[in-house]
């Protein structure tokens, strides 16, 4: 197949984007309702953290996660999550149905990489609302950190580039995890608890990793940092952005290097799991 023309991935992706937008715009009020409901979820969540910070001034003693540092953390979580929700979530959920009904046959027959096709064919545009909300929260919190009288935050272009780079790493790690979970439905026949399982695992990524670094949290911290690296997803970019003082500390440097290794590792592993799983696919009826 080496002589075959390379599939125009970018063009195909643009078509996916356009088709999804057309689909969402067909049911416009549904789109608006989805935007509003995901926004209200965010507002409620923010309310919860405001409640916490009305009682305490930081999360964990001497961790440096004060109110606005944590809001940078929170908006980082939102950036990454909305990205995953917009591009991969609807597809991963559909994947299990494709297998159960045998419709994966059609995807396999197309002259394009199967993983690409099934990972991106549907895009959820309504996630944009939350993405923008995250943007507002992020800018506001960074501005608050820069304007505070003591120990103000100074931003460099390098920090911004690094932040964006680690955001992308975070998305790749979560994507790899999701596609591996979705691929297991080839073996299991049907995987309805995929979404639950996903929620339970990523739940650990939502808070600064310092909260696990004591007592019986340590095994959890180890598990979710080194085996299933969901803890580095948000922690690394958020720490680089909100706590540049810690940038020079050895643990942050180590984590930053490790995050790159984890990203490459998870992507390769997920690709391997996916192709292995495809080999076991035996269509369904016809």
């Amino acid at each position: 197949m080496t002589t075959a023309k390379r599939a125009p991935y970018l063009q195909v992706f643009k078509t996916f984007l356009r088709n999804s937008l057309v689909r969402e715009m067909t049911f416009r009020s549904n789109f608006v309702i989805q935007c509003i409901s995901s926004l209200s979820w965010t507002v409620m969540n923010l309310g919860f953290y405001l409640l916490i910070f009305s009682h305490a001034d930081q999360i964990g003693p001497d961790t440096g996660w004060g109110k606005y540092e944590f809001f940078v953390f929170l908006s980082t979580t939102m950036f990454i999550n909305t990205f995953v929700q917009a591009f991969f979530m609807p597809n991963a959920q559909e994947f299990s149905e494709l297998i159960r009904r045998g419709n994966l046959d059609f995807a396999l027959l197309k002259p394009i990489d199967t993983q690409f096709l099934i990972s991106l064919s549907k895009v959820e545009w309504s996630a944009c609302a939350n993405f923008m909300a995250a943007g507002v929260l992020f800018i506001f919190s960074v501005w608050q950190l820069m304007a505070r009288p003591e120990n103000p935050l100074s931003l460099s272009w390098f920090a911004i580039v690094l932040y964006l780079f680690y955001l992308a790493c975070g998305v790749v790690i979560l994507y790899s995890l999701m596609i591996s979970l979705a691929a297991t439905s080839i073996w299991l026949g049907r995987n309805q608890s995929l979404y639950n399982f996903w929620f339970y695992i990523t739940n650990f990524a939502r808070y600064p990793m310092e909260i696990y670094q004591q007592g019986w949290g340590l095994p959890l911290w180890f598990l979710f940092t080194f085996i299933v690296p969901v803890l580095v997803v948000v922690n690394v970019p958020a720490r680089l952005m909100a706590q540049p003082v810690a940038e020079t500390s050895p643990s942050t440097t180590f984590l930053a290097v490790f995050a790159v290794v984890a990203t490459v590792g998870s992507f390769v592993a997920s690709r391997w799991i996916f192709t292995r799983a495809l080999l076991s696919y035996r269509s369904a009826s016809s």
Partner: peptide
Amino acid sequence: MRFLPIVTQIFLWQAILATIADGDVK
């Protein structure tokens, strides 16, 4: 599995309560 989300919640509060002087909120 349903106990898992609580685990994170407990760690979060543990960290928060550790920063408060008397170690309790209301």
